[in-house]
Amino acid sequence: MKGMRILAGIILFGSLWGMMECVLGDYLHNQGIWAGAIMTGFMGFGLMAISRRMYGVRGMQLGMGLIAGVLKYIHPVGGCMLCSAIAIAFEGAVFEIIWYSPKLNMNRMNWLMKASMGVISGYIIYSAGYVITHILTPVVASAPLYLSDLAGVMPVIFSSATIAGLAGGLTLSAVQIPSDFAMRVTNAKKEIYYPVAYAVSAFCWIGTIILS
């Protein structure tokens, strides 16, 4: 697959993820619901799983996380922008590590493997993102960093990660993309593929900034 097609896919899926984090994530946060765990388990992991199944390209999800993190950071409303942006940016990297092995092919898994890998992915991506942002946010913001605070908060992280794990299990079990559909989308004529990908991406960015 051509690099430019993959790049357009990264921008498209990353922008969708970033917009959902800004709109739905902030709404859940304001409602006092487990916004981080739900958004990671359903939305972030869901979009990364869909893009991996459709394109089958490693490294794409790392780029998606970076795009989504940037969109979250420039969106000036809601929860902790810097913390969320750092967490999201690293969630893509953690996904890449978990799904690095070629043996883990989503298209060839039975339902038990899908559910289990979904649980593992949701749980670890959320926990790792939480820990990383707790270390890097103070570093980036020149704020005090004490690892004893992190040790104290670990049970809270492991507890809330359960929601992300269950959400991941449900998401991966539910993501059904027929291979012929994936082929049609990823190999669509360039006259259709690029304009649609960039138009949707632009809508996500402009819409998020206007909504702010």
Partner: peptide
């Protein structure tokens, strides 16, 4: 792998339950 992966998933959920 088909045996290890579900076992890890169960362990993580148990860790989450005990932490809660």
């Amino acid at each position: 792998v088909e045996r290890i992966v579900p076992a890890i998933a169960v362990c993580l959920l148990l860790l989450g339950a005990f932490s809660t």
